[in-house]
């Protein structure tokens, strides 16, 4: 692992969350799965960072490692000027409340045996903060739930979209600085998805949140993010501001991803740029045995001999635009 500061980490004093050289390994039987390897990024105050990639590439693992649930195998997570990976016990519990998480499956995120009101008040109760009915109702109405009729029900009486609202209310009750959303709309219908995305934008403005937004739907990520990080097989491929990544993707994998989006409007589709790209072929390699050098090389149409030998490091590809590829498509 390099000690050099990765170039994509910015020198700014409004950085809220900084993840440096993060790695997470899992022991599966006798093998070690490298779910996340040497990932670095930062998020500035009020920013939304989108994290995209295929299923199994380690997005959720990063989200959880930031929360120290479980702590990463290596690397640092700097939040409020502290490295969370060295904290433990009470200090960790305390710091962790500044970060909250929303999950993909809203139904399994809520304890089926508790009332909505208690679920939302839980964090406040734990920390002995104001958990009065008024406070709970305030967050509930902020997310568009009717406290009077919804408060005493149990989660299974609500639809997926409503459950997601409950989850959002629960995480907002603790007044976090950072909200980590792990595919919060993937399980929802398109019409409800729009409601939740709008709600997240509103809540971000109202509660001055900084967000890490994990998803595999690129249009959704573009809609909500200021910056985007693209992952493949546990590693970062490309990171930069949303406009740059979507209009001028330079990593072969990002191009392939963008080329696979079906567009709702057949007339507006700009086929010129992307449709000429060769399609992504083959299957994702196993993270237990990732390819040498560049992990994308087994499916990369531009792979050359150097890609198998040497691992590509992040390099600048433009203004706030970084790519890890030996032969970026500049």
């Amino acid at each position: 692992m390099t000690d050099k500061t990765p170039c994509q980490l910015r020198e700014r004093d409004d950085i809220v969350l900084r993840v440096a050289h993060l790695s997470v390994n899992f022991a599966v039987g006798k093998q070690t799965v490298q779910a996340v390897t040497d990932v670095s990024f930062d998020v500035a105050r009020g920013e939304t960072l989108g994290l995209v990639g295929e299923s199994g590439c380690g997005k959720s693992t990063i989200g959880r490692a930031i929360m120290q649930l479980p702590p990463p195998s290596a690397g640092a997570v700097i939040f409020r000027d502290q490295d969370m990976t060295v904290l433990s016990g009470e200090a960790l519990r305390q710091t962790r409340t500044g970060l909250q998480m929303i999950f993909q499956d809203p139904v399994s995120s809520l304890n089926p045996r508790r009332r909505v009101r208690d679920i939302i008040a839980e964090g406040l109760t734990i920390w002995g903060r104001d958990n009065s009915a008024a406070r709970v109702e305030e967050v509930m109405s902020a997310v568009g739930l009717d406290a009077a009729s919804a408060g005493d029900r149990r989660p299974h009486q609500f639809s997926g979209g409503q459950c997601q609202r409950i989850c959002i209310a629960r995480s907002l009750a603790l007044d976090p600085d950072v909200l980590i959303c792990d595919e919060p709309v993937s399980a929802l219908d398109v019409s409800v998805q729009a409601q939740i995305l709008n709600l997240l934008e509103d809540m971000k403005a109202r509660y001055h949140l900084t967000m890490v937004f994990i998803a595999h739907n690129l249009a959704v990520v573009k809609n909500i993010s200021d910056r985007v990080a693209v992952m493949y097989l546990g590693k970062l491929c490309e990171i930069g501001n949303t406009e740059a990544i979507y209009s001028k993707p330079v990593h072969p994998y990002t191009r392939a991803l963008l080329a696979s989006i079906p567009d709702a409007d057949p007339l507006a589709r700009e086929q010129a740029l992307l449709d000429e790209e060769p399609l992504l072929q083959g299957e994702l390699p196993s993270p237990a045995d990732p390819p040498s050098g560049c992990r994308f090389r087994t499916r990369c149409p531009y792979a050359q001999e150097r890609c198998a030998r040497e691992e590509p490091f992040m390099q600048a590809a433009g203004d706030d635009h970084f790519v890890a590829c030996h032969f970026p498509l500049l």
Binding site: V190, S191, V192, Q193, A194, Q195, L197, N198, E201, N217, L218, A219, V220, K222, N223, I224, S225, D226, T242, E243, Y246, L258, I261, D263, A264, D265, A268, E270
Partner: peptide
């Protein structure tokens, strides 16, 4: 209500209530 890849970021979506 569908987010469009060609729209700029933070375009407000027209959700169906």
């Amino acid at each position: 209500s569908i987010p469009r890849i060609n729209d700029p970021s933070h375009t407000r979506l027209q959700a169906i209530p």
